[in-house]
Design a binder for these strands. Structure first.
Length: 270
DNA sequence: CCGACAACCTGACGGC
DNA sequence: TGCCGTCAGGTTGTCG
């Protein structure tokens, strides 16, 4: 999916279309994605005015003046299309504003989700309750990470993918951040020295901010809501670069951890 | 609590 | 051209 930067880019792209606009039409086009879509979604959102857009981890938030918040997750392949010319079989939810702008949530693999919760209870949303801190916020520090990783023998790479430890990182940016921080992805979480964790926190911030700045990554099926592609994928240091040379001259390798590809440099990351 | 692994679903791509 | 295996940005449930 869309990891944190792509969701952030998406939310920023949706804001000018939705903020302050009344939802003239709300049309779910199937009953479920990964889970069931709330059956009363159409009824509760139609006629409501969008008051704010937001993001928590990899979830996008659309708040309305009726006290409801639509929470969307893009899964692996989800994206919002803006003013689509025509709809395909993977366009699962349509929104139309009072200005006649149209938005379609398109998600071929349907690993995404849609939920509607009372805004005052967003923090109690089950998927949010156990989430770790935002990586771009104040809470994520080297000492915080050290506490969360203490005693853990699982590879640091897998622990960083655990949304309960840090919320919003995915496979791409974990690979990138570990490379920037010079950390071996298979190092036991609890064994990473404090100095490396400091570098890691800086690397996580830097890579996420740079990706947001560039408008998110663009892989197979991700595009910004306005249809323009993100450019950050061109800046990957290791992700998807198996066999290519690292800056140090050593070749980037790919291995599988927890069933997912890890790209890294064996010389720079120890 | 921890870790390993399968499952969910479709599409793109490479090899033959 | 077509068929088949493999892989893909994530999350969640089960089992030991």
């Amino acid at each position: 999916m869309p990891e944190l930067p792509e969701v952030e880019t998406t939310v920023r792209g949706l804001a000018p279309v939705l903020e302050g606009r009344r939802l003239a039409k709300v049309e779910p086009r199937r009953a479920d994605l990964r889970r069931a879509i709330p059956p009363d979604l159409r009824q509760r959102l139609t006629g409501a005015t969008v008051t704010a857009l937001g993001r928590r981890a990899k979830y996008g938030l659309i708040e309305t003046d009726r006290g409801d918040t639509l929470i969307f997750h893009l899964g692996m392949s989800g994206r919002w299309r803006v003013d689509p010319e025509d709809l395909g079989k993977h366009d699962h939810l349509l929104l139309e504003t009072d200005e006649g702008r149209r938005l379609s949530l398109c998600d071929p693999r349907r690993f995404g989700s849609l939920d509607l919760v009372r805004t005052e209870a967003v923090a109690d949303f089950p998927a949010f309750a156990a989430l770790g801190p935002e990586p771009l916020g104040e809470t994520l520090t080297a000492s915080f990470l050290a506490t969360r990783l203490a005693g853990r023998i699982a590879p640091i790479k897998l622990l960083l993918l655990d949304q309960r430890i840090v919320a919003g990182l995915g496979n791409i940016y974990v690979c990138e951040a570990l490379n920037m921080a010079g950390i071996n992805p298979r190092a036991a979480g609890g064994s990473v020295p404090a100095a490396r964790l400091k570098r890691l926190v800086v690397a996580i911030r830097d890579v996420l901010e740079a990706a947001i700045e560039a408008g998110g990554s663009s892989l197979r099926d991700y595009a910004r809501p306005d249809g323009q592609l993100g450019y950050f994928s061109k800046q990957f240091r290791v992700y998807g670069r198996e066999g290519e040379a690292c800056e140090c001259g050593s070749l980037i390798v790919r291995q599988v951890d927890g069933g997912r590809s890890t790209f890294w440099c064996q010389k720079c990351q120890r």
